[in-house]
Each structure stands twice: as structure tokens, then as C-alpha cells.
């Protein structure tokens, strides 16, 4: 299951609505407010520091040392050495290229599919509520379990995909899909199956923020639906498209569950996170695994920031 989207912050709203109070009573009330506030945020702050910040620092430290003789021991300080080795590793490069392929396919399918779905669901119709329940189903299911349900589809010999394509005479021999060049595209399709609902909901919210009058006014001026789509819908939808693209992007960069269930740790479909898993879980090489994980995290954060800045520049330009 993919992550959840984030709204852009709106500054200067919190706490600003209260009537001004003066004198001693106001000062006491403000103190009471501040004390209560600090108590109420204490648990979340403690959890974040203890279980996110601290392990982050601990992990970063591990990534700077060579592997020790035992799993809990550590070797000599190597600085950025582990990072350099990870970048030069051929397995890293092939995993990175695969991930690029996953990301490209996922983004195109998600945005195109999400746009079509959102447009179709924009206006009310009978059964739309039920349809939404159906729509979010793939997002709600654990991606590992979805992968298990898809497995028979890609089975070699008499899998459903083979049977279908043979029947349609699109292929002449049954394919071992997970061993061919089609393995990555098909795994990407399974990934998109799970993420499309979220992308659709984001785009739908964007669509519904476009006022109906824009459409009726342009229709009066003789615009065809196709021209309306190109000249009204797409430009006005750009903020939502950017958010959807960033979420789809970060999600696809970290693709793992579907690969694990459909093709295990096989090299021909390995993604960057799969390579981290391989280093940490299979080879028990913690320093290199963590170094790689940090590189991926930094890279996807950078991508998201660049995309946001690019979107903002284009909006102001």
C-alpha cells in the first residue's frame, strides 16, 4: 500500500483566531494554554526523537564504519568509503536502471489512468458512492497480498496472461514472464494497481476545485470538450498533477513488496530498495546496506524538492 499524500502548509492560521485578552487574567490564560500545549505534544515528540531521529543518527554512524567481525561489532572508520563503494557496485547500477524503468512506467500509467478515472468520476451518477468503495479497494489491500493474488496471472505455461495472449494469437509460445524483459513492466502494472486509487483521488480533488462556470462559459464560446480538456482542465489541474506526480514518483522509487512476491530477489527485476534488502538481509552487510538506503532517501527527497521548485517557478513565470 502506498503512502498518503500531504497538503501544502498554510501559514499563519494557528492560534490566531482567539479574542485578545488583556491584564492578569489574559496572562494566566496564556500560560495555561502554553503549558497544556507542551504536555500534549510531548508524546509525539518523544516518539519521534527516540524512534526516528535516534535510529537515523545511529544508522548514519554505522554507514561510516567498515563491517565488523560480528554483526554487532564494527570495523575501522572509513568515512564516505561505503558510499563510494555502493555507487561503484555494478549491482547498484543495474538496480538503479531497473528502478528508472519502474518509475517511468509507473508515472505514465498512474497519471494517464488517474486522469481518465478522475474525469469519469467527476460528476455525480447513480452508484458513485459504491464505485468509490470499489475504486479504493486496491489501495486498501496489503501490496504483498495483492502480489500473491496476481501471481497466477503471470504463471508460466498456463498462467492467465499466457492463456489470454495465446488465445488472441498475440504470442505463439507460453512465456516465462518473470524471466523476460516484460518482468519489470508487469511488476510495474501490479504496483500501479495499488497506487492508482490515491493518484485518482488527488486528481479528482483538483478537478472538483475547477468551477463549473469556466466550462459553461467556454461552451457558450463554442469550445469543444477536447479543447476544454487541453485549454482548461489540464492547465488548472497542474498543481494537483504535480502533487500526484511527486507522490507517484517517491512511491515508485521505493518499489519493493510487489517485486518480492512476484519474482523474489532475482537480479533481472531488482530495484534499489530490493538491493538494500539484499545487502542487509541476505548478505548481512549492514554498513553498505545503510549507506545505500541513505543515498536512496536523499535522492528521492531531492527529486521531490526539485519537482516542487520547478512547479513553483513555472507558476510564477
Amino acid at each position: 500500500m502506498p503512502s498518503v499524500a500531504l497538503k501544502e502548509p498554510q501559514a499563519g492560521q494557528s492560534g490566531a483566531r482567539w479574542p485578545a485578552r488583556s491584564g492578569l487574567w489574559g496572562a494566566t490564560a496564556a500560560r495555561e494554554e502554553a503549558r497544556l500545549g507542551r504536555w500534549l505534544v510531548l508524546p509525539v515528540a518523544a516518539v519521534t526523537v527516540a524512534l526516528v531521529i535516534y535510529p537515523l543518527v545511529l544508522g548514519f554512524e554505522t554507514s561510516l564504519y567498515a563491517a565488523g567481525s560480528t554483526l554487532s561489532a564494527r570495523g575501522n572508520f572509513v568515512g564516505a568509503g561505503n558510499y563510494a563503494e555502493v555507487i561503484k557496485d555494478p549491482a547498484t547500477i543495474s538496480a538503479a536502471l531497473h528502478t528508472l524503468e519502474y518509475v517511468g512506467i509507473c508515472l505514465v500509467l498512474q497519471l494517464a489512468g488517474g486522469l481518465v478515472t478522475a474525469v469519469a468520476l467527476r460528476r455525480a451518477f447513480r452508484g458513485r458512492g459504491l464505485m468509490f468503495g470499489v475504486l479504493i479497494m486496491p489501495w486498501a489491500l496489503p501490496s504483498v497480498v495483492s502480489g500473491v493474488l496476481w501471481r497466477r496471472f503471470f504463471a508460466p505455461d498456463n498462467g492467465l496472461l499466457n492463456s489470454l495472449l495465446l488465445h488472441l494469437h498475440l504470442i505463439h509460445n507460453a512465456q516465462v514472464w518473470m524471466a523476460t524483459g516484460w518482468a519489470i513492466p508487469w511488476i510495474a502494472v501490479v504496483h500501479v494497481w495499488g497506487t492508482l486509487p490515491l493518484i485518482t483521488l488527488i486528481l479528482l480533488a483538483g478537478l472538483q476545485s475547477i468551477p463549473d462556470e469556466v466550462y459553461s462559459a467556454s461552451a457558450v464560446d463554442g469550445a469543444t470538450p477536447a479543447r476544454q480538456f487541453w485549454h482548461i482542465t489540464l492547465p488548472l489541474l497542474r498543481p494537483a498533477l504535480v502533487v500526484a506526480a511527486i507522490i507517484g514518483l517517491v512511491d515508485a522509487v521505493t518499489i519493493f513488496d510487489e517485486i518480492y512476491v512476484l519474482n523474489g530477489i532475482a537480479l533481472n527485476t531488482s530495484s534499489v530498495v530490493m538491493q538494500v534488502y539484499n545487502l542487509i538481509f541476505v548478505q548481512a552487510d549492514f554498513p553498505h546496506g545503510i549507506a545505500f538506503a541513505f543515498l536512496i532517501a536523499a535522492f528521492s527527497a531531492l527529486l521531490a524538492v526539485v519537482a516542487l521548485i520547478a512547479a513553483r517557478l513555472r507558476r510564477t513565470a
Binding site: G15, R35, L56, Y277, A293, I296
Partner: peptide, 23 residues
């Protein structure tokens, strides 16, 4: 509620959302 450090804490905690769990 208005209290010192509230905004900083909000962004610090929300900022951790960009850290993938596998790191």
C-alpha cells in the same frame, strides 16, 4: 494552542515523513 516551539516541532515531526522506513 499557542506555545513557544510549536511551529518548529510541527515541521520537525512532519519532516520525518520524508525518511523512508528502510533507512
Amino acid at each position: 494552542l499557542r506555545f513557544r516551539g510549536g511551529k518548529v516541532l510541527l515541521w520537525a515531526v512532519v519532516g520525518t515523513l520524508v525518511i523512508p522506513l528502510f533507512t
